[in-house]
């Protein structure tokens, strides 16, 4: 089986790659596109470290085939900041010390951006359930949730 050619958009830029059918989007992002910000913590959709936004929805890139990226619009952690200007979610994660080792952080930031794009004023409970698929073993989630709520407030202009 020869490789399949895929044309897609990653972080606003047109992108092309060759993939074998079984390769996940995460494999493609990390090994072919050298976008290693998306992490593999489990490879089974249970940890959320590989979260990316595909056509407006946050998904685990380990549960998407590379070939399914054809014609899609994909945002990874590398595309969240606008050049040197951090996204408010990134800034609030730093201000609230919402990361320790930082391994789950890219996935959490991507998932949080997807939440706030959809629901600018989540309750703490909504934020906790939305992010339940993003495991963090370091923080106990306290500072993460505070960062999410504060980012939401800032983005609302509250």
């Amino acid at each position: 089986m020869s490789k399949i050619h895929v044309t897609t958009t990653i972080n606003g830029e047109p992108a092309e790659f060759l993939t074998e059918p079984q390769m996940s989007l995460l494999d493609i992002l990390r090994d072919e596109m050298h976008l290693t910000g998306s992490k593999e913590g489990c490879g089974s959709g249970d940890c959320g470290a590989c979260s990316v936004i595909m056509d407006g929805r946050v998904v685990c890139s380990c549960l998407v085939l590379g070939v399914e990226a054809e014609g899609k619009d994909i945002t990874t952690i590398e595309g969240i900041a606008n050049g040197e200007d951090l996204h408010p979610v990134q800034r609030k994660f730093l201000e609230h010390a919402a990361l320790q080792c930082g391994f789950c952080t890219p996935g959490l930031i991507v998932a949080t951006k997807a939440l706030l794009d959809r629901n600018p004023d989540p309750t703490e409970t909504e934020a906790r359930y939305w992010l339940a698929g993003n495991l963090c073993r370091c923080t106990g989630y306290d500072k993460i949730i505070r960062a999410v709520m504060d980012a939401a407030a800032e983005m609302r202009g509250a």
Binding site: G45, V58, C60, Y129, A132, G133
Partner: peptide, 9 residues
Amino acid sequence: IGSTQVQGR
């Protein structure tokens, strides 16, 4: 069924 991420798929 699954997490937010899984729900998207």
